[in-house]
Amino acid sequence: MSLFWRIFSLNAAVLTVAALVLLFAPVTVSATARMAEALIVLAGTAVTLIANAAMLRVGLAPLARLSRVMTTVDLLKPGTRLAVRGHGEIAALIAAFNSMLERLESERAASAGRALSAQEAERHRIAQELHDEIGQTLTAVLLDLGRVTQAAPEQTRDQLLQVRESIRNSLDEIRRIARRLRPGVLDELGLASALRALAGEFTTAGMSVRRQVGAELPVLSKEVELVVYRVAQESLTNAARHSAAQHVDLVLSHEKDQLQLCVRDDGRGLRGAAEGAGIRGMRERALLIGAGLTVESGTTGGTSVQLRVPT
């Protein structure tokens, strides 16, 4: 039965009951209604309206549930579906909405995959240019400065040494940026070594990172390794920049056919703040490999980021 005929039937049923009550109830209304008669009519009208509202609420309840889901659905948190209840057009509408969500989630994942692949390719290109072009140029400058320093007078040698030290620090910074853009250790030595190097990098930046990497990790694809590494990198970056954390625990474990990465800090926590571009980027990366990501405040403060990858 269509929605129109359902509403019509409900109203017809209520009006029919009201008419039967007026026909067969021992109640009369004078030409000029008395107070008691007016109260009886008003009470009957109120009962009729209440019954009509209750029946309509029951009949339209699936639409109210659909409206709530539509206002709260987030494509970065897939799996939200509404149970198909009701009949006729309402059930068809809910089924169509669920189908639309599936298409949107698949299209969002595909477009995010293309965008992230392009981003990684661009990072790789920039890192290679930093290493090959700027890195080699600064290395040549250091060698030239070394020869100039040896032949320079004593009064200018100290200044040249300071310039040389500044250039060496700049070269180290460029190499560090290149490693963050494209971690060569991830391709050469694997995920476990890359995470150990990442934890050491943030430890030297003034934040203590306690790492615990499982000894027996499953064989992972390059795509999965890169997603796990980027999520750990973004989590540590957020802890250093926004949480004012002093200690961070980075744990990578594997149990029950599931690889789990947990990054927990002792900083300020989320404190009800909206998710920024960094967290949404982590969610998009997790969707690419079918992983689940949760970001929440810890029970004793701080922030906890958990990535669960089915293996």
Rank of each mutant, 00 (worst) to 15 (best):
L82F: 02
G298Q: 09
T237S: 12
L49I: 00
L217Q: 03
L181I: 10
Q128F: 07
E275W: 08
R230E: 15
P153W: 09
T16L: 03
A110L: 14
R268E: 13
G206D: 04
V227C: 08
A25G: 14
V213A: 03
A19R: 05
H254E: 01
E216D: 11
I167G: 05
G135L: 10
A53Q: 02
E275Q: 09
A19W: 05
S221F: 02
F8I: 11
L116D: 14
A13E: 00
A54P: 01
H242N: 03
S193G: 10
L307P: 01
D257G: 01
A18H: 01
N11E: 02
M282Q: 04
V148W: 09
E234G: 02
L226V: 08
V295F: 10
V41G: 07
V305H: 03
I126Q: 15
A33M: 14
E107N: 14
R210G: 07
A38W: 05
L145C: 05
P183V: 05
A286C: 05
D158A: 15
R210V: 07
A95D: 12
L259Y: 00
L130Q: 14
E275D: 10
V209K: 06
M55N: 01
A64V: 07
S2E: 11
D172W: 11
V17Q: 02
L142R: 11
T45W: 06
A96Y: 11
E120R: 13
A118H: 11
V29E: 06
N98G: 14
S99K: 06
E296R: 13
S235G: 13
V227Q: 04
F202D: 07
A25N: 02
Q119R: 04
G272K: 09
T137V: 13
I7M: 00
V248H: 03
T139I: 05
G278K: 07
E223Q: 14
P183K: 09
D249A: 11
N238S: 06
H87L: 05
Q306T: 15
L101A: 10
L259I: 02
L293E: 01
R271V: 14
Q136T: 13
V163A: 12
R264D: 15
T311R: 00
T311P: 00
E188F: 03
S106Q: 15
T300V: 09
L226F: 12
L181F: 14
H124F: 05
T28D: 10
Q155E: 12
P183Q: 12
T45Y: 02
R182Q: 12
P310N: 10
E223R: 06
S253G: 12
L42T: 05
A205P: 04
L39V: 07
R68N: 05
L198A: 03
E173G: 12
A192R: 05
L307W: 00
D172I: 04
R271S: 15
G59T: 02
T311H: 01
A197Q: 14
L75G: 08
P218H: 00
P26M: 09
M282I: 01
R103K: 10
L101V: 13
H254N: 01
S67E: 09
A13S: 03
A96L: 04
L160M: 12
T294D: 13
L104F: 13
E255N: 03
A240G: 02
S67Q: 14
L130I: 11
D144Q: 15
Q258D: 01
T299N: 10
M100D: 08
D257L: 00
E107V: 10
